[in-house]
């Protein structure tokens, strides 16, 4: 009975260990540095990584070239373990917050990183990405997974200085049944977003159909249920950075820097 607490304590110390964080970060960096150098020479293997979620890529593409792709799941597992390590550090910090409150900024960064890792995992397991879907003006298409309907209402060219067409503005409407959820005029950096769904018009064109010219847009429709969690993680990290910088200068100005001998 008396051995149990020490065994649990040792495991907890290992999970919270700063050295474990360094080992995991170093291993992930080294593996990804080596592996990513294979990317430019093998676009047929690695370009689809941005066109589909990681789970689909690991199932459909990676097994065809195991010697080129093994580093991706390995680095991903190491980063997941690093996320777990940071969570344990945050919990340990919370347990001792009375004496460690001055490190709040650093631990907010840790917590933000953990949230982003969770969001990445969630989105890449349960989301989807569909690029290059043509939708004609006036056409409606069903968008999974919530049975929503996307309608392209209008496509308008936006002119820059000198009357040159710079981009196309697409008016998109999202419906659930007959209920209008959102209507947005999308253009560069202004997509339609709704509950993890993001719709980005990539290109527009015209084709002759039934004796008349019809305008269409190629849509990128991505669904990432973890996007809002990732945003929350980013906010936590951003606040953590600002707080850590503030606390750094305060500590330096008061000479409180015990690790400098």
């Amino acid at each position: 009975m008396s051995k149990n607490p020490s065994w649990v304590g040792s495991l907890w110390s290992l999970l919270c260990s700063l050295k474990l964080a360094i080992v995991l970060a170093s291993c992930a960096t080294l593996i990804a540095v080596g592996g990513s150098l294979l990317m430019p020479a093998n676009p047929q293997v690695f370009t689809p990584l941005d066109e589909m979620i990681l789970k689909d890529w690991l199932v459909d593409i990676a097994p065809q070239s195991p010697f080129l792709t093994w580093w991706v799941p390995t680095a991903a597992v190491l980063v997941l373990l690093l996320g777990l390590n940071t969570l344990c550090c945050v919990i340990d910090w919370l347990l001792h917050i009375r004496v460690r409150w001055r490190k709040s900024g650093e631990y907010l960064i840790h917590f933000g990183f953990f949230l982003i890792v969770c969001a990445f995992l969630w989105g890449n397991l349960t989301g989807y990405r569909a690029g290059g879907q043509p939708i004609f003006v006036g056409q409606s298409v069903e968008v999974p997974p919530h049975g929503l309907v996307l309608k392209l209402e209008e496509v308008q060219p936006l002119e820059g200085p000198g009357g040159r067409i710079m981009e196309m503005a697409n008016t998109l409407a999202l419906y659930r049944g007959d209920e209008l959820l959102k209507r947005v005029e999308t253009r560069a950096n202004h997509p339609l977003t709704w509950g993890g769904l993001v719709v980005i018009p990539a290109n527009a064109g015209q084709v002759m159909m039934g004796g008349r010219l019809r305008t269409y847009s190629l849509m990128t429709v991505n669904y990432d249920p973890g996007a809002n969690l990732a945003l929350a993680g980013s906010v936590a990290m951003g606040c953590g950075v600002l707080f850590a910088m503030f606390s750094f200068y305060r500590k330096r100005s008061s000479g409180d820097h015990p690790d400098i001998e």
Binding site: M39, R129, T193, I200, T220
Partner: peptide
Amino acid sequence: AYVAWGYYFSWNIKGVWSSLVWLF
């Protein structure tokens, strides 16, 4: 990246190496 491409992490080599710089 999220509002421009629809995802916040790109597997393009620049995205991967920027993450590595951060991790390092």
